[in-house]
């Protein structure tokens, strides 16, 4: 890294997070490392319970009360986020770092019109007057390609379709010129065709406006076609990381490989022949009993003796392609 290279927009280094539930302590992630550059879309992929949402909430510091960040640094635009006070974080949330949630219906306030919700946020953060804020709202809604803006602005969220609600969420996320948008399963609640439109919108806006996106999803297909880079998460560890095309076409980590092989696709059906989908034996561990050594080892088809005792190190396989597996040693 030369002196003229820009530091990443978001840099997570050595992050460890734990939850205390009743008497037990669960370790969500240990020594997590990841980064997002300016203007890139990074996909965070993993199955339920792997900690991807927790990572998002760690970044914007909206973790539940029974959690504790044990170690590590999160820096955004060069500044450490973990050191900031709640007041400072509130200024950052929604303006510099915005979040778009899974279910737009529950993220939008049902008792306010679209205009009221969006304008209020703009007024508070940017100190604009009501009419100026309203103009900005209209501008943002146009940006997300909503038709009939006047009507939409005066509508209540439940009067609009899921796709429209999601676009409004994106508009809200962008209205304060966010540099980083964290999208937590933004397309799980909408249909396939709308999903495509939303993702395409996100990609185009990203190019036009220049923000970065952390796309959290369990859907590998989404990531393959939309993200620049992808990070695969398992039981709180990022087991593989690299450019989307490389990781999808040339997976290195056994978990990534198994995941790709277990997805049914049209191509896998060859006329009468139906090769069984690859499955991963066992079940994913919960945060209270993460296996020793490599967290994936009990389910790994290629495990070695060393995998059950020593956690693998993150190694570079190729340019920009990293994987944590003893098989690479």
């Amino acid at each position: 890294m030369t002196a003229t290279e820009q530091p990443p927009l978001l840099d997570v280094d050595n992050l460890s997070l734990a939850y205390k539930v009743g008497e037990g302590i669960g370790y969500v992630f240990r020594n997590l490392r990841m980064h997002i550059e300016l203007g890139e879309m990074v996909g965070l992929v993993g199955e339920s319970g792997c900690g991807k949402s927790s990572l998002a909430y760690s970044i914007i510091r909206l973790l539940p009360r029974n959690s504790r960040i044990l170690d590590g640094r999160i820096s955004f635009e060069g500044e450490s986020l973990l050191d900031k006070s709640e007041a400072e974080m509130r200024k950052i949330r929604g303006s510099k770092i915005s979040m778009v949630f899974q279910d737009p219906m529950t993220s939008l306030n049902p008792v306010f019109t679209v205009e009221q919700q969006m304008a209020k946020v703009i007024e508070v953060h940017e100190g604009l007057t009501k009419p100026d804020a309203r103009k900005k709202v209209a501008r943002m809604l146009r940006l997300v390609e909503l038709a009939d803006i006047e009507r939409v602005m005066k509508s209540y969220p439940h009067e609009l379709s899921g796709g429209m609600q999601q676009r409004i969420m994106i508009a809200m996320a962008l209205s304060l010129s966010a540099k980083l948008i964290i999208a937590d399963e933004p397309t799980s609640a909408v249909d396939a065709t709308i999903q495509l439109q939303i993702l395409q919108l996100l990609m185009e806006l990203k190019k036009e406006v220049g923000f970065s996106v952390l796309l959290i999803t369990h859907n590998l297909g989404v990531v393959a076609k939309t993200c620049d880079r992808v990070a695969v998460m398992y039981a709180g560890d990022i087991v593989e990381e690299g450019s989307a095309s490389t990781v999808m076409s040339n997976p290195n980590h056994p978990y990534t490989k198994a995941l790709l092989q277990s997805i049914p696709t049209i191509a896998k059906r060859q006329g009468e022949n139906r090769p069984p989908l690859a499955t991963i034996e066992g079940t994913a561990p919960n945060i209270f009993n993460i296996p020793q050594g490599c967290p994936f080892h009990p389910r790994c088809a290629y495990r070695l003796d060393i995998c059950s005792s020593i956690p693998p190190q993150r190694a570079q396989i190729d340019l920009g392609h990293f994987s944590s597996c003893h098989l690479n040693d």
Binding site: E47, I263, I280, A284
Partner: peptide, 13 residues
Amino acid sequence: DVSVQAQIVNLLL
């Protein structure tokens, strides 16, 4: 989850 789905699908087939 995808991996669980694969198990169920294989079972059904």
